[in-house]
């Protein structure tokens, strides 16, 4: 896969950084001239992925979250959100809508459902005790002016 542009950043798993993370990704993606709706979907999907790291991966600790964004051909972005937290035992179950291990936190259990619905493709890799990475791919519409 040819990468046309790439950026990476990492930050501490504090909930006050959720806004920073989605804003940073959307600022970078802005160079592809996405529609407001596409940008909003990307921001929402990133917010879900980062929140999962904070709420689940680093439940009782502060750890590091890394985000990589690649721009690849066909006006497509590939966003990877990675942590070195507790990992997911059963990915399939974790991705079921309404499944949550944190009901006390008032989590709706919709994180993965939103990521799936707001991007074209998502893949999740996880090793219990090692961490999780979530990769999301989304093709953006081509504006007429871009030919």
């Amino acid at each position: 896969m040819k990468v046309l542009n790439e950026m990476e950043f990492s930050f501490e798993s504090r909930s006050s950084n959720e806004s920073f993370a989605r804003s940073a990704v959307s600022s970078f993606v802005a160079q592809l001239d996405p529609t407001i709706s596409e940008l909003n979907e990307i921001r929402t999907a990133v917010s879900e992925a980062v929140t999962n790291c904070i709420v689940h991966a680093y439940k009782n600790e502060i750890g590091r979250i890394s985000v990589t964004v690649k721009i690849v051909p066909e006006n497509t972005v590939v966003i990877k959100v990675r942590d070195s937290g507790c990992g997911i035992e059963n990915i399939q179950q974790a991705m079921e809508p309404l499944f949550t291990t944190a009901p006390g936190e008032e989590r709706a259990g919709l994180g993965f459902a939103v990521m799936q619905s707001f991007t074209d493709r998502i893949s999740v890799r996880s090793k219990p005790g090692k961490g999780t990475s979530v990769t999301m791919r989304k093709a953006l519409s081509r504006r007429v002016s871009n030919g």
Binding site: R43, S47, T51, A108, G111
Partner: peptide, 13 residues
């Protein structure tokens, strides 16, 4: 101006 699924949890709660 923005909401993720945390807003859904907020409403349901």
């Amino acid at each position: 101006t923005f909401m993720d699924s945390s807003g859904i949890g907020l409403i349901m709660g």
